[in-house]
Design a protein around this nucleic acid. Structure first.
Lengths: 195, 195
DNA sequence: ACATAAACATACCAATTAGTATGTTGCAAA
DNA sequence: TTTGCAACATACTAATTGGTATGTTTATGT
């Protein structure tokens, strides 16, 4: 990685941390620069403006942070229910920097920015669609191997699972980690109720 | 209502609108004043600071906006499933100022402010607990009338329903009203799967 | 009618904001 | 070695921010 690429990556990493904790609009560029070796000139060399940096964040950082957990879970065991459950468990409990307190950066950004900025909405939707298709594929694999009836709509279930993830990430902010635990129980029951 | 109370109420109503659409941190006091007949002196006569106004918003406006929909649905029909379904339907489709685009003000505020401000977290949690208990009571009524097995944990189900509401409000920001429709179908199935 | 406090109105301030203008440095090709 | 551009660095600006200081008006009890 060239020095310039490293600078760009430093900006994005630090921006990710701060935006995750404070929100996009409330994180100033000076905030990001203050805790980095980067100056304002460097920032505006790499990004046209704050918005473009946010979009880059979604497309790059987001992708390298959350996607691995998903791919490490799905299609690993023959039982599709176990895989989806493991995916949820990993996202909620095993991620290196996501906390119950601050939730999930993708969920947060959707909440904050989707209504305000079309470019954000498109980038976030694209990112979520990828996840949805991965879950959908796992469910269809379950159907093909006879673990799940063909009458179920795989896409609808996939979206429902993502909806649950969004919900639990928000509820966790109020009720803390114990709610994650009780949610996972309910989630397991939901998966088993699909027959 | 005295003139002073009307002023205070004007501030809160307009603040609600703006905070709902832009978020708490990104709504400035000048924003609120600009579209009201209220001056800064009046604002700071009624509220110590922006934070205190936000707390008042949660406790008052929130309560008069969302609570009626809940009480108008629960305990109206003998079938507890119908009532809970109706509550969800009303909240999602029938509310006078909530839109799919901007979601639910309570959900938004939890997302944004719960990790940043303890007073907000407490006020929001209190507000949500009230809702949770109302749903829980409805479920227990269902158990007492033999519509639902006693082995179910009413509180856990109530929290799960609220989790779903949080999730769908967020997902709606990306996928629009059609997703609400498909979610409601899935929600009906979930309610019926509880036996 | 008048005192007194409640309910405002206006002018201001220091800090912060996104963004720009104008530099400088370092390295790679000629 | 010099030229040229990529990759920064520094200093600045106009606008916006939450909050305050210091007034004026309005209602209300006596």
């Amino acid at each position: 990685m060239s020095k310039a690429q490293a600078t760009r990556s430093d900006i994005l990493r630090r921006a990710m941390e701060l935006i995750y904790k404070q929100g996009f609009q409330s994180t100033s560029i000076d905030d990001i620069l203050a805790t980095t070796q980067v100056t304002k000139g460097a920032f505006y060399y790499h990004f046209k403006n704050k918005e473009e940096m946010g979009i880059a964040l979604i497309e790059e950082a987001m992708h390298t942070e959350i996607w691995p957990d998903i791919q490490n879970s799905l299609s690993t065991s023959p039982n599709f229910r176990d895989n989806i459950y493991k995916m949820m468990d990993k996202l909620l409990f095993k991620h290196p920097f996501m906390t119950v307190e601050h939730g999930c950066p993708a969920v947060n950004l959707i909440q904050e920015m989707a209504p305000l900025n079309e470019a954000f909405r498109v980038a976030l939707k694209k990112s979520l669609n990828k996840w949805e298709r991965a879950i959908e594929a796992e469910i269809m694999r379950g159907q093909e191997t006879g673990q799940l009836g063909l009458s179920h709509d795989a896409k609808q279930i996939a979206l429902h699972i993502i909806t649950l993830y969004h919900g639990v990430r928000n509820m966790g902010k109020l009720f803390g980690k114990p709610y994650y635990v009780s949610f996972l129980r309910e989630f397991r029951q939901y998966l088993d109720s699909l027959n």
